[in-house]
Structures are given as structure tokens and as C-alpha cells.
């Protein structure tokens, strides 16, 4: 399943997508994220599954444009730490 966490408003589209089929439950992304946006949890969108997957913390979902801002400088942007830490490549950002 592809879970898109975030939002779209007048200023743009801000989603972190997590491919829960690719996620190997390793949890490396959690400490890699400086503002601690991610956590590991049982997949709440597949209630009949027990798998633990990376998710965006609920309280961050409506403000990731702002929380993720320090990792996305206006110019000279490098690799995002969460994506770099994810060995199976399950994390993507839409902006």
C-alpha cells in the first residue's frame, strides 16, 4: 500500500509517501529524521494486518511543509535524511 501523508492547500502539495509493501520494518528512518516526523507503528490502514511500518506521526501530518522546511533549503538542497536512511527506498517526498 502507498500511504500519502500530508496535504494540499493553496500554496502547494506536500506529501510524504510511504510504500508499506517495500518498507522492511527496520526503523532506520525514525532516528534519521531531525525533527522526528516519523515513527514505527502497526499499519492502521490495513486493520487485518499486523505488520509494523514507518508512518508520519499524526500531529505532524498537517504541517509537514513547515516541519520538513529545514531539510529543504531554498537553494542547495541535498539528499533528505529520511530517504537516504531507507534502504528499500520506501519513502518519497512530493515537493
Amino acid at each position: 500500500m502507498i500511504a500519502n501523508y500530508g496535504y494540499k492547500d493553496g500554496s502547494g502539495e506536500f506529501f510524504i509517501s510511504i510504500d508499506t509493501d517495500r518498507c522492511n520494518s527496520c526503523g532506520e528512518c525514525v532516528p534519521a529524521c531531525p525533527p522526528k516526523v516519523l515513527e514505527m507503528a502497526t499499519d492502521e490502514y490495513d486493520p487485518l494486518s499486523e505488520k509494523t511500518v514507518a508512518t508520519v506521526r499524526e500531529e505532524e501530518r498537517k504541517k509537514i511543509k513547515y516541519t520538513c522546511a529545514p531539510c529543504k533549503p531554498a537553494s542547495g538542497r541535498g539528499a533528505l535524511p529520511c530517504m537516504a536512511a531507507c534502504e528499500p527506498g520506501a519513502i518519497a517526498h512530493s515537493w
Binding site: K63, K65, Y66, T67, A69, P70, K72, P73, A74
Partner: peptide, 11 residues
């Protein structure tokens, strides 16, 4: 908090 996030983007 929204304004400061923008400031952090430019440093």
C-alpha cells in the same frame, strides 16, 4: 511558527 519555517529555509 509558519513564518519561522520559511526563515529557516533561507537560513
Amino acid at each position: 511558527s509558519r513564518v519561522v519555517a520559511m526563515v529557516r529555509r533561507v537560513g
